[in-house]
Write a protein that binds this DNA or RNA. Structure first.
Lengths: 241, 241
DNA sequence: ACACGTCAATTCTATATAGAAATAAAGATA
DNA sequence: TATCTTTATTTCTATATAGAATTGACGTGT
């Protein structure tokens, strides 16, 4: 059964979808207060209980943050990342890996066939490619290759060069009002190549973790693709309850 | 009504914790219907709204399953696993790996120091060790080493030998009323050893994924430890939203 | 045997209300 | 100036109620 018009869905769901739309549209930006439940209930012509339920579901999905006595804000990436634990690469002694970041190069290019595929665009579309290192205790631990869609993020290369951000998704949020809502990662075991030897000092042929990540915005649009090659003394942590 | 001075936690939270306790205790078993929200509200002397909120939170945590018109049941592992996607190892073409399981050996042993550490017991405590293979398209893909606490699961070795279960956690639920509520996994890249060559046919020294899993029950007690060594044409999938 | 309608039980949606608890800003006081 | 008090705002807790939607069991009729 396909959903007909927005019709006979429950009120609170239709309201929730509209609130989501308003966040997507940039009407309310990350960090900003949205109207109170009373105000929203009045605006939508529903009871506060119904408005509450719509808001609460978005808060459960960590798109909104409620604070008693203060109000409801749109979640910022810095807040979401803590809960979602986007950074799951750990050192052997259980510390997070992204202590420091060192950018190697930022360049514009034409999308390869794999990039085109994950982004759902034509081959040759403009992308920005970034190479950088993640350091822990002053030692390079992870070598990263980023690809970003220039059609969605115009001028992102210059921005990255200028600001060298520690957390890319916070920059996307701040500068482009794009909220990364979902991330998918494939973890594989691979052999170290010459490039890994040079950047990380691992011996060629040694096993390494390779992680391919695709990041999606609120609309489910793939925005960034990333390949991470991690030194052998790190592990990937995955917990679910 | 006013706050009964007992504990300063909200009513619905205390009720929720008591419901959790009753599931843990085995009073309501996986698959069974628990009393309706009306009945529970009456029993606890609270309004249906409050009872509803307690039940709803446990349903959000996937410990309970609500069905309109039918009632509320304790979630069975088979239901939870779908949602939690416990099986995240995939073949290159995106299929789940655990199509078929072949048991190699089941034996009793004394806990090694690492086993003792993860289980929080003394070294030498009795454990059951299991070796088995996961197959896909008739080919062995993953080699698994399981350790189970015999103090918590008496006679589990014999049970496994007899039933050769496809899904271990369903057996724990059925036979011991132990619900696996949390799982933690460390993923590493390692070199293939002789044992991997023999069992999986991978060349010695080739990179493989090694996953160390610890499974916890509702009380947070570590019940099982598992090491999985996966052939190179598989990957580990991790999604979070 | 089989289809159909009825009915009770259960969760879900929606509304309304009252007071508690936390927060932030404005105001009062030393 | 600095600190305490008050006040308004907002979310959170708790109760109460009415009807809709879904399910499963029961009974009836053909």
């Amino acid at each position: 059964m396909e959903q007909p018009a927005a019709a006979n869905k429950p009120l609170y769901l239709r309201m929730k979808e509209d609130l989501l739309r308003r966040v997507q549209s940039g009407e309310w930006r990350p960090g900003e207060l949205i109207p109170s439940e009373n105000a929203l209930a009045a605006e939508y012509g529903v009871s506060v209980g119904t408005a509450r339920k719509a808001i609460e579901e978005l808060a459960d999905e960590r798109l909104l943050v409620r604070q008693r006595g203060r109000g409801t804000t749109v979640a910022m990436h810095t807040h979401r990342q803590e809960v979602l634990r986007h950074y799951r690469l750990m050192t052997k002694d259980g510390e997070r890996v992204n202590e420091e970041t060192s950018y190697l190069d930022v360049a514009s290019a034409r999308a390869s066939s794999t990039e085109a595929k994950v982004f759902g665009v034509n081959r040759g579309t403009a992308v920005t490619r970034v190479r950088r290192l993640r350091l822990y205790a002053k030692q390079p631990v992870v070598l990263e290759f980023l690809s970003l869609r220039e059609d969605v993020l115009p001028g992102v290369g210059a921005l990255i060069r200028a600001t060298q951000p520690e957390v890319l998704y916070a920059l996307l949020e701040r500068e482009y009002h794009i909220i990364i809502a979902k991330v998918s990662e494939k973890i594989m075991a691979v052999k170290a190549e010459a490039e890994d030897t040079e950047a990380l000092g691992v011996r060629a042929g040694e096993p390494m973790l390779e992680i391919e990540r695709v990041a999606y915005d609120l609309n489910g649009r793939a925005v960034e693709r990333r390949i991470m090659r991690a030194r052998n003394d790190t592990y990937y942590l995955s917990e679910f309850a």
